[in-house]
Design a protein around this nucleic acid. Structure first.
Length: 645
RNA sequence: GCCGAUGUAGCUCAGAGGUAGAGCACUUCCUUGGUAAGGAAGGGGUCAUGGGUUCAAUUCCCAUCAUUGGCUCCA
């Protein structure tokens, strides 16, 4: 007999060789049917794999991440089997699970192609295999056996993977006619899978290396019930409605024009108004924190970027340099604001009494992004950073860094970005060549970030190898409507640029010292931030940011004149709106302006004219009743105050 | 950049080797209507661009441009 301990700390005895499903069955039959996989002493374990020793066990159903992942992983194997059926000779790369579903990288036989028109038949085949209720059989194999199997099959990708595994740890899983190199675990059998959908096809370089062969990646997702698939697809449809590219067009916030150039956004009047409000908001906060605004040009001499190191790093991949006709001088579009700011720092001698010097600029920068990387407003070639550079003494870093964190958190709180992750990006210790600067400075900078984040009580995730080439950073990531993560706020410590630009200050000891720089952008870029803001609010911006806060709806043309008076009076209270004086019925005006997501609809007709009032209707909520013009103006200003608290 | 998909009216989309379609938007007229679509008429397209096949191409083929999903999440 063996002793098995459950998560609630109770212990029971079972006979040796019992498996998780049988254990579940001893608790309840219905539970047994739902068990997908188990964790045994911290290791994932097939639900049908026997247990021979005392252990702690945790049973996973579909609702657990572990359950879903096992489910999808097994689905990937069945998809592989189906693909092999339609494309004999296909070779397989890797087939892991992802956040929503799974994929398999395949190398199609010569001449074969696959496109989404093939999805239906593959899905059908997958379900057919699933319904066959084939067991997933686990088999431990020796390295030699494994090599032999895939040599015989001619799958060089699997052979490459096996090559990196050590003997004695290799397992195969088979179902029906398909066997794969796999660590597992898997479902008991294929019949758990009741619904499957192939999502898309993509090219993916083998092992993520663009010098190696590009494989075809097939994405899919599967569910234990058809209803769950339907729900998932519906959820995707809903998410698409929040897409900032769609809303940006509908709400006339920004546009692109192939004639201007891909990835070069243009802000329309309403978008510009929104952006300006965000900028002014941040300027006000920054003023409180002792920042000073500066303005620098959009281009700079090549030599500026040679000094900064950007030329060496990005020069080749950037936009082509600009040459002056007479002198043949070489300029670059600025990819970053920091070199200019360094020159401002250098413009006169600085004393320790001047530090920290905080130079802020909404600086527009241009970066050549690969055409395939462009994405709405979140990934563009010309964008405006809410940039600032803090020049300080080494012992001021920690304090300054923490103040920046405060600003970021204040902004996120005001805009209700509650669901963000803070990521500390450090050097890849195994590839230090990628970075510029001394080891000692890197270590100091990395430690400064880690300490500041922990002091501010941030829950952080550390990512090695994600640092900028000139320094480590703390990034604030937020997800978009479709669950893609974007970096918004960023704070970076930099010992490198002060060195390269030979920045100095005179200390209290009357000697020259080198300052440290902190780069920071709480929004990140105005473009990306607004994109994420659109998706978060579904275009229903907080009142203070709404390009149009109210619309006046006259019941009929007879009340247009009164509407004009109201507009003028509200203008005086610093609220923004317009009159919908179209020749339409009130119901129509309400519908159209609701769809435009105008926060307040003000109906004026006979009654309002008589009493000098407004009928206030809140978007998505309905009638709030009559208010005088002053009451409404005070009310709306109070609402804004509350938002900005 | 690479792999896949897409490109038809301002927007959302249907269509077919032989004279270009719908809904919404727009213009004009009727209507002056009290909380999510009043009625009628009308204008609007080099079917992304450039080649090719064909008696005939917006449709088929090729290229280009743009948009879009992915190329990190490791058997």
């Amino acid at each position: 007999m063996i002793k098995i301990k459950f998560p609630d700390q109770t212990e029971r005895e079972f006979s040796e060789g019992i498996n998780p499903i049988e254990i579940a069955k001893s608790l309840s039959n219905s539970l047994a049917k739902e068990i997908i996989v188990a964790t045994v002493d911290g290791n994932l374990w097939d639900s049908t794999r026997p247990i021979y020793t005392n252990c702690e066990i945790k049973l996973h159903k579909w609702d657990d991440t572990e359950g879903k992942h096992c489910f999808w992983h097994s689905s990937a194997h069945i998809m592989a089997e189906a693909l092999e059926y339609f494309y004999p000779g296909v070779k397989f790369g890797i087939g892991p699970t992802i956040e929503n579903g799974f994929y398999y990288d395949i190398d199609l036989p010569d001449g074969a192609t696959i496109s989404d028109s093939d999805f239906a038949k593959i899905e059908k085949k997958i379900l057919e295999i699933a319904q066959g209720k084939h067991d997933f059989a686990r088999k431990e194999v020796s390295k030699d056996e494994a090599i032999q199997y895939f040599q015989h099959k001619g799958d060089q990708y699997k052979l490459e993977l096996i090559d990196e595994l050590s003997d004695g740890t290799i397992t195969f899983y088979s179902q029906n006619s398909f066997t794969d190199l796999c660590r597992g675990p898997h479902l008991a059998d294929t019949s758990y899978i009741k619904a499957v959908k192939l999502m898309s096809i993509a090219g993916a370089f083998w092992r993520g290396d663009e010098k190696r062969k590009q494989l075809t990646r097939v994405y899919g997702i599967s569910f234990p019930k058809q209803k769950l698939l339907d729900e998932y697809l519906h959820m995707l449809e809903e998410a698409k409605k929040r897409d900032h590219r769609k809303l940006g067009k509908e709400l006339e916030l920004f546009m692109f024009s192939p004639k201007v150039g891909m990835g070069l956004p243009m802000w329309l009047p309403k978008g510009a108004m929104l952006r300006e409000r965000l900028e002014n908001f941040l300027k006000k906060v920054q003023k409180k924190y002792g920042y000073q605004q500066v303005i620098t040009p959009h281009i700079g001499m090549k030599d500026l970027y040679v000094t900064s190191g950007h030329y060496e790093k990005y020069g080749k991949d950037s936009f082509q340099p600009i040459f002056t006709p007479a002198e043949n001088e070489e300029f670059l579009l600025k990819p970053m604001n920091c070199p200019h700011h360094c020159e401002i720092y250098k413009s006169k001698p600085r004393s320790y009494k001047d530090l920290p010097l905080r130079l802020a600029e909404f600086g527009t920068v241009y970066r050549y992004e690969q055409s395939g990387e462009l994405h709405g407003l979140t990934r563009v070639r010309g964008f405006t950073q809410d940039d600032a550079h803090l020049f300080c003494t080494p012992d001021q870093i920690s304090e300054e860094f923490k103040k920046v964190i405060d600003i970021v958190l204040y902004i996120f709180k005001t805009l209700k970005f509650n669901d963000f992750t803070a990521q500390i990006s450090l050097r890849d210790p195994s590839d230090k060549k990628k970075y510029i600067g001394t080891d000692e400075n890197w270590e100091k900078a990395e430690q400064a970030i880690i300490d500041a984040a922990s002091e501010k009580g941030l829950t952080t995730k550390v990512e090695l190898g994600e640092a900028a080439f000139y320094g480590p950073k703390l990034d604030f990531m937020v997800k978009d409507a479709l669950g893609r993560k974007w970096q918004l706020g960023t704070i970076q410590v930099d010992y490198n640029l002060p060195e390269r630009f030979e920045l100095e200050y005179v200390g209290s000891d009357d000697r020259k010292h080198r300052p440290v720089m902190i780069h920071r952008a709480p929004f990140g870029s105005m473009e990306r931030f607004v994109a994420v803001l659109i998706e978060h609010t579904e275009g229903k911006f907080p009142l203070w940011l709404s390009p149009e806060q109210f619309v006046i709806l006259p019941i009929s043309e007879k009340y247009n004149e009164y509407a004009n008076q109201v507009l003028q009076m509200l203008d005086a209270y610093d609220v923004r709106g317009f009159i919908d004086d179209r020749n339409e019925k009130i119901g129509r005006k309400i519908r159209d302006n609701e769809m435009k997501k105008i926060p307040y609809l003000l109906v004026v007709g006979e009654k309002e004219l008589e009493n000098k009032t407004l009928s206030v209707r809140k978007q998505a909520e309905g009638d709030l009743g009559m208010q005088t013009i002053e009451e409404f103006a005070r009310f709306i200003n109070k609402e804004i105050e509350k938002e900005l608290e």
